[in-house]
Amino acid sequence: MALKVFDLQCEHSHIFEGWFGSHEDYDAQQARGLVTCPVCGSASITKRLSAPRLNVAHLHAPAARPAVPSNASDAEKMAALQAVVMRQVRAVLRNTENVGPRFAEEARRIHEGDADDRPIRGTATPEERASLAEDGIDVMAVPDFLDDERLQ
């Protein structure tokens, strides 16, 4: 399925990409308050003027990304940086096993050598994350809206 990629901006001027199945999908998610800024969590989001893009990278060989021109505005440089970060986060998510609510248990099993060492993701309460950190198990919270599996 080809996804539409929109440049979005929150009320605090954070610029980020949003990936949607269609314009209607964006409108529906926006109306339900599901489109939020990944930086500050604001739900006051607007679409920015941008060239239309479709996420069809799976149809082509990887291409080099053009560098941001040195005369680009600070907002354009920030948008480019945010886009790179969002692509990297999504790449990490695509290359992990979703263990769902068993995340804390599975992370502990991997740390203790009782399960295969592999990249995982899932859900954990703040208390579970704190307990893992106390035991020297590094975890990072990532907003679940970045998980493309959740949107399918």
Rank of each mutant, 00 (worst) to 15 (best):
E97P: 00
L8V: 08
D27P: 01
D138M: 03
A79N: 02
E106Y: 07
D114Q: 14
E97R: 13
G136D: 05
I15S: 02
S70V: 11
P126W: 03
H58G: 14
P126S: 10
W19K: 12
E112R: 13
H23V: 08
M140I: 12
I137W: 05
R102M: 01
A43Q: 11
T125C: 07
D25A: 11
C37Q: 03
L81W: 04
V56M: 14
A79D: 02
D27M: 11
A51R: 08
D138I: 07
D74Q: 12
G100F: 00
D135T: 10
D7W: 10
D147M: 03
G100C: 06
S73K: 13
A133Y: 07
R102A: 11
L49D: 14
S42P: 02
D114M: 12
A133C: 04
L54R: 11
A67V: 11
V92C: 08
V92D: 02
V92R: 03
P52T: 12
D7P: 00
A104N: 04
F20S: 09
W19L: 14
P126A: 07
H111D: 05
E128C: 04
S131A: 15
Y26M: 06
D116H: 04
P69G: 06
M86P: 00
S50P: 00
A107R: 01
E106A: 09
A51C: 06
L132T: 04
